[in-house]
Simulated assay, not measured.
Amino acid sequence: MSVYNVHERLLTAKASEVGALIDTLSSTEDKLWAHDEWPPMEFDRPLSVGAVGGHGPVRYTVVAYVPSTWVRFAFDGPRGFAGFHAYAALAVDEDHTLLRHTLAMHARGPARLTWPLLFRPLHDACLEDSLDRAESANSGVVARRARWSLYVRMLRRFLR
């Protein structure tokens, strides 16, 4: 099963400012990952090509990194996840930047069931929370805060 999943938010900020949020991923000053509500993104070293880690049961390796612009992670797990996810800061004009998270993978074996039933709803909620953090970091407010569905709240309670 092919999966292509995109989350994005238009931010009123320069690309360099939004890209700087990407640079904080997995650090003690992480301003992008929603680590207050989700398992933290952690690596075996600072964000750089070759860093290995992930969040919760999702494991990956940094395979490409352009500071203040873009980072790509290749999945190492869970079983059946074959592909990548990435954050990119894309300049729209001098004062607006699109922060985009892209996940592209082939779900094989058990992931053909776990992706749509478990991981996708949690992933979608986590990414919207991450984009809320980015918006708040750049403007101090979130125009329309993401809300978890009843299904996501039930999954989170069940998985605790």
Results as ranks from 00 to 15, higher is better:
Asn5Leu: 01
Asn5Ile: 00
His7Tyr: 10
Arg9Val: 08
Leu10Gln: 06
Lys14Trp: 11
Lys14Asp: 04
Lys14Asn: 05
Ser16Arg: 15
Ser16Pro: 01
Glu17Ile: 06
Val18Asn: 00
Leu21Gln: 03
Asp23Ile: 03
Leu25Tyr: 11
Ser26Ile: 07
Lys31His: 06
Lys31Pro: 00
Lys31Phe: 01
Ala34Gln: 07
Ala34Ile: 02
Ala34Phe: 12
Trp38Pro: 05
Pro39Met: 09
Pro39Gln: 11
Met41His: 14
Met41Trp: 15
Glu42Cys: 11
Pro46Leu: 14
Ser48Lys: 15
Gly50Phe: 11
Gly50Arg: 13
Gly56Phe: 08
Gly56Ala: 07
Pro57Met: 09
Val62Cys: 04
Val66Thr: 06
Trp70Pro: 00
Phe81Arg: 06
Ala86Met: 10
Tyr87Pro: 00
Ala89Tyr: 02
Leu90Met: 04
Leu90Cys: 03
Ala91Glu: 10
Val92Asn: 09
Asp93His: 06
Arg100Asn: 09
Thr102Asp: 12
Ala104Gly: 10
Met105Cys: 06
Met105Asn: 06
His106Pro: 07
His106Trp: 15
His106Phe: 15
Arg108Met: 12
Pro110Ala: 14
Pro110Asn: 12
Ala111Phe: 12
Pro116Ile: 06
Leu122Lys: 07
His123Val: 03
Asp124Met: 07
Ser130Arg: 10
Arg133Ile: 02
Ala134Val: 08
Ser139Met: 02
Ser139His: 06
Gly140Arg: 03
Val141Tyr: 03
Ala146His: 13
Tyr151Asp: 05
Met154Tyr: 11
Leu155Glu: 14
Leu155Met: 14
Arg157Met: 13
Arg157Trp: 13
Phe158Arg: 15
Leu159Thr: 12
Leu159Lys: 14
